[in-house]
Each structure stands twice: as structure tokens, then as C-alpha cells.
Amino acid sequence: MSNIRPVYTRELRSYLLTPIAYLVGLIFLLVSGVFFLMIVLEYSRYSFEIIRAGSRLHGEGLTVAENILRPTLSIMSFLALFMLPMLTMKSFSEEKKSGTIEMLFTYPLTDVDIVMGKFLASATVYLVILGLTLFYQAQMALFKPPPLREIFAGYLGLAMLGGFFLSVGVFVSSLTENQIVAGAWTFGTNILFWLCGWVAGDAQSIPGRVLRYLSVFEHFENFTAGVVDSRDVVYFASLTALFLFLTLRTLESRRWRS
């Protein structure tokens, strides 16, 4: 019988009781909100200019999806890159440091219960924050019918991207009892996955193609364009699963390292 729920509930409660989740949420909403405002202002200024110039284009090529949603999604992906390590850095580190892990490991729980409980709790916090940012897009719906397909694709992308970052964070946190070290390593690993495509450039060599395939950025880009490609979904899902699996192996290692 799966026993994820009590672990999940406790983790979630712990997020609600400590300031970290609120801080991450606040910064995420504030920064994405400010950028959204700037993007909208820029958008309206530009469309005014087009109208005033009496351009025959008449604002063609300017769409909410392309000129408002897409840059907002990019900003939010950056925020996820910076902020999510803070959500996961304590997940195992804190329990290792305080010794509560010893109790957790002697309860009738499987390692899967523990890892998934922790991962899903952090994912829940992230999804709530993401959900709140939908408010920005809802405001736009007052002026124009919202580009629902693009919004869905973009937010699915953000969710998968975040899931991946969180799984890296949970994994790194299982390696150390120092929260700061966990946070820093998570951030470093995320950035590596983000940038490895840029390093590769346009190189058509095998290493170049591998690096580009591994790049988070390349796969996330497609989502912001409103395209849900199964290859990108598989990419994020499999990397997330890989890091959760690695976490399980780390926990298991205490059983054979003797």
C-alpha cells in the first residue's frame, strides 16, 4: 500500500509554516508581474504607433500570444531557474541535519513514499504560484479573447520545466546536509542544463547534437511557441524521472554502504 499521503501532507504543511515558500512566491509574482506590466505597456505603445502612422499593416503580426504571452513565459522560466532551488534545498538536507531522517527511515514507509511525498509537495507549491500568475493572462482576456492553446502549451511547459528543476533539487538535497550547498549545487546543475545548448551552438557534430538535445532551453522554447511536441514532453518527463530515480538510489545507498 502506498503511503505517500502523510509524507506529502507533512511536507506541504511545513512549506506553509516556514517563510521560504511565501518568499519564493512573492518574488516570483512580483518580478513576473512587473515584467508583465512592462511587456503590456510596450505592446500598447507599439500598437498605438502603428495606428498613428496609419500603417497598412494595421498591427498585423502583433498578437497577444506572440508579443505578450511568450516573453512573459520566458521571464517566468528564468524565475523558475533562480527560485526553485530554494524550494527544494531543505527537503532532505534539513532532515539529515536535525536527525529527523532517522525516524523517517524507521517508519513503515518505502523510499518511494518519502521521495515522491517530498517532490510532489514542492511541485504543489510551485503549481500554486504558477496558477496565480494566470491572473495576468486573465486580465488580458478583458481586452482580447485569450489565446487558450498557447496559454495551455506555455503553462504545461513551465510546469514540466519546474518539475525537472525540482527533481534536480530533491536529488541534490539528498546528497548533503547543508541547505546552502544543496541550493547552490541545484542552481549550478540547472544552469548547466540550461546553457549546454548555447555551448553547442550550431555544431552538427554528435557531441553538439547531444548537448543541444540535453538543453532545457531548446525544449522549453517550443512550448512558448504554443507547440506541445511529444519529444519535449518525453524529454522533461524522462529527466525528471531520472533525477527522482537517482534520489531513490542515494537513499538506498545507505543500505549497501557498509
Binding site: 507533512r10 504543511r13 511545513s14 509554516l17 536535525s98 536527525g99 529527523t100 532517522e102 525516524m103
Partner: peptide, 12 residues
């Protein structure tokens, strides 16, 4: 089981 110095979740 109660480990040494009973490590409990202090924020609960």
C-alpha cells in the same frame, strides 16, 4: 523507535 536526543520536527 526513539533515536538519541529525540529528533522531532520542531516547526510542528
Amino acid at each position: 523507535y526513539l533515536p538519541e536526543s529525540s529528533p522531532l520536527y520542531k516547526d510542528m
